[in-house]
Amino acid sequence: MQIFVKTATGKTITLEVEPSDTIENVKAKIQDKEGIPPDQQRLAFAGKQLEDGRTLSDYNIQKESTLHLALR
Rank of each mutant, 00 (worst) to 15 (best):
K29D: 03
V17Q: 02
Y59R: 01
E64S: 08
L15M: 08
T12P: 05
P19K: 15
K11T: 07
R54M: 06
K29W: 06
Y59D: 02
L43H: 01
A44R: 14
A46I: 10
L69S: 02
E16L: 13
A8V: 07
V5S: 01
T66L: 10
V26C: 03
T14S: 08
E34F: 14
K11Q: 12
F4Q: 11
E16G: 08
K63E: 08
Q41E: 01
I3W: 00
K33R: 15
N25H: 11
L15H: 00
D21V: 06
A44D: 14
L15K: 00
K63A: 10
K33T: 08
K27Q: 02
A44C: 04
E16V: 09
T14L: 15
G53H: 14
L15S: 00
A28D: 06
I30Q: 00
E51F: 04
A8Q: 11
F45D: 02
E18Y: 12
I30R: 00
R72Q: 15
H68G: 12
D32T: 08
K6Y: 14
K63H: 06
A44P: 00
I30L: 14
T66S: 10
K27M: 06
L71C: 04
N60E: 03
R72L: 15
G47R: 06
R72W: 07
V5A: 04
I13D: 01
K27N: 02
E64G: 06
T14A: 09
G47I: 02
E64C: 04
T14C: 04
L71P: 06
Y59W: 03
L67D: 01
P19I: 10
Q49A: 12
R54D: 10
I3C: 02
T7S: 11
D58M: 09
E16T: 14
Q49E: 13
R42Q: 06
T7E: 06
G47P: 01
T66A: 05
K33N: 11
I36S: 12
L67H: 01
Y59T: 02
S57K: 13
H68I: 05
L50E: 00
P19V: 11
D58W: 11
Q49C: 04
K33S: 09
P19S: 08
V17F: 07
S57W: 13
E24K: 09
A70W: 10
E24G: 08
L56D: 00
E18L: 15
